[in-house]
């Protein structure tokens, strides 16, 4: 396969993942401002930080309002992580690597782009938000379904999956890192209603507010939330799950190509740590420091994959 095609697949799936993530962050933000009587613009501050676009926002807007923040996250082309920017970038990559995709997968992303372009042509009204978020999730689901249902399990599949999980691991780590302070033991000793809202918001940002109850008891506890998002191998957005998938997809490539790269070492090492360290140990070391290092390591893995498999644009 061309190094350019592998690169295109990798980024196509990173962008699709990011689009969904941005939509989920908006959803969590909206929810928070609904449940809190003293809703402040601070909530959106956190959302923008989780999306890693806080500084970019200030370059475009004078002050922080919920309306501007939503618009920035949803459809501003000046924001490369906005839902619309991501869908467009994902679709452009898909168009470039079209020969690598099944017709069903291509049509799913192309139709997603056609529909979202229509829906997001104008600034969205607050009343329309639930429907818009729903459409984004549904469209992303259709892309995923077409991809899983029709693609050959070959290198094309592996590079796509690797893009998905590098992006997802980064997103989950960021969401946790922005809110790490509300998970600190000192603060959480007494679970105020304010804390509960924050905790639930973290879970919502990764669509895990329901599944949490199935795995832990109904009560929200910071250590359990951190455990769920970092170490729980059954939670599809956890760091451990992402790395499990990264290691297995890189493993398929190593077998098919008959060679290993630095990326294989890095991914396996990270997975090993995720499996062996308890959440108590991580919290003791310092959650913020841990997440910062994880994000750096994840970026390094991305570069190593790109070098090892000769990606180029």
């Amino acid at each position: 396969m061309l190094g350019r095609t592998a690169n295109g697949l990798y980024w196509m799936f990173r962008y699709i993942e990011r689009a969904e993530n941005s939509a989920r962050l908006i959803d969590a933000g909206l929810r928070m401002s609904l449940t809190r009587s003293e809703a402040t613009e601070d909530d959106w501050e956190g959302v923008l930080q989780s999306a890693d676009v806080r500084e970019l926002y200030d370059q475009v807007h004078e002050g922080l309002t919920s309306g501007d923040a939503i618009d920035f996250l949803l459809r501003d082309r000046a924001n490369p992580s906005s839902v619309m920017s991501c869908i467009e970038a994902g679709r452009n990559n898909a168009r470039m690597v079209r020969t690598a995709l099944t017709r069903e997968t291509w049509e799913a992303i192309n139709e997603c782009w056609i529909e979202m372009k229509g829906i997001l042509a104008r600034r969205a009204k607050t009343t329309d938000m639930p429907e818009i978020i729903d459409t984004i999730k549904r469209r992303a689901g259709l892309i995923r379904g077409a991809f899983h249902g029709t693609m050959l399990r070959n290198e094309i599949f592996n590079f796509s999956r690797i893009g998905t999980f590098i992006e997802r691991a980064d997103n989950t780590a960021r969401i946790l890192d922005v809110k790490y302070y509300v998970l600190l033991p000192a603060v959480s000793a007494v679970g105020s209603s304010m804390d509960n809202v924050q905790w639930e918001s973290i879970l919502r940002s990764v669509s895990a507010h329901r599944s949490y109850g199935w795995v832990y008891d109904a009560e929200l506890r910071p250590a359990n939330i951190a455990d769920f998002l970092i170490a729980n191998g059954r939670m599809p957005r956890s760091l451990a799950y992402c790395y499990d998938k990264l290691v297995s997809n890189l493993g398929y490539l190593a077998r098919e190509y008959g060679e290993r790269h630095a990326a294989h070492e890095t991914a396996e090492q990270t997975l090993g740590l995720l499996r062996s360290q308890s959440i108590a140990e991580i919290m003791d070391q310092g959650l913020h420091q841990y997440l910062k290092e994880f994000i750096n390591q994840n970026n390094r893995l991305g570069r190593e994959i790109s070098d090892g498999y000769r990606f180029y644009q």
Partner: peptide, 10 residues
């Protein structure tokens, strides 16, 4: 002396 393409394997 050959036309070659840049692939993920070289």
């Amino acid at each position: 002396g050959r036309v070659k393409m840049r692939t993920t394997r070289g």
